[in-house]
């Protein structure tokens, strides 16, 4: 079973990897975006960790809802409402249980990903975070490790795609040949599950 500590470790691990990879995320965002993805997410997850420490929510659902709300408030770019909605809806789906099973998390995360697709209007193949998240959620039934591999594979597979959502879509064919920064950061979020489980 996954308790509140697991979800705190998940957020901490994600914040650390976003911190580590911030420059790379911003570099990926330079040719096809507005070169702020790394710094925006860094600001957001730093605020998430601070607010989790201050408010100390004690259930998995409450942790993710607070984290999501904080991302919406602090990121400043489109990734704020998108990641914020992902975590908030996932948290909402977990309810107020003190512990949740892995299957429950997989189901809740699927609800979160569905909400992101509804909010942004993106579908698989549009060269967005959805291209990492959907395969990850599909593989989550097997293991966290399988989900991480699927997310990383999904992020890499965005390179040959033409962007159909967001600022990159204005570039048309010129968006081809660049890995999507949102799919890349989504893979970091999913990798955080493995790190949280290993600790």
């Amino acid at each position: 079973m996954l308790d509140a500590d697991f979800f705190r470790r998940w957020m901490t691990a994600t914040a650390a990897s976003v911190d580590r990879e911030a420059e790379r995320l911003t570099a990926l965002d330079s040719p096809i975006g507005d070169a702020d993805h790394g710094s925006n997410l860094q600001r957001g997850f730093t605020a998430v960790i601070a607010t989790l420490e201050k408010e100390a929510p004690d259930t998995p659902g409450a942790i993710l809802m607070l984290a999501g709300r904080q991302l919406i408030s602090t990121v400043g770019g489109a990734s704020g409402p998108l990641y914020g909605t992902l975590l908030r809806r996932t948290g909402k789906a977990l309810g107020d249980a003190a512990e949740v099973g892995e299957e429950q998390l997989a189901e809740a995360l699927r609800a979160g990903v569905d909400a992101v697709m509804q909010l942004g209007g993106a579908a698989p193949g549009d060269k967005t975070m959805i291209d990492a998240l959907v395969p990850a959620v599909d593989a989550l039934g097997d293991s966290f490790g399988a989900a991480r591999a699927a997310a990383e594979q999904g992020a890499l597979a965005t390179t040959p795609l033409q962007a159909r959502k967001g600022r990159a879509s204005y570039l048309g064919e010129r968006s081809i040949g660049h890995q999507d920064p949102g799919a890349t950061s989504s893979a970091l979020l999913i990798a955080g599950l493995v790190e949280a489980a290993d600790e």
Binding site: I72, G80, P81, L82, G84, T85
Partner: peptide
């Protein structure tokens, strides 16, 4: 556009 629209939508959903 973009994050302005998405942020409003996310706030309304809240």
């Amino acid at each position: 556009l973009g994050s302005a629209v998405l942020t409003v939508k996310a706030l309304l959903a809240e």
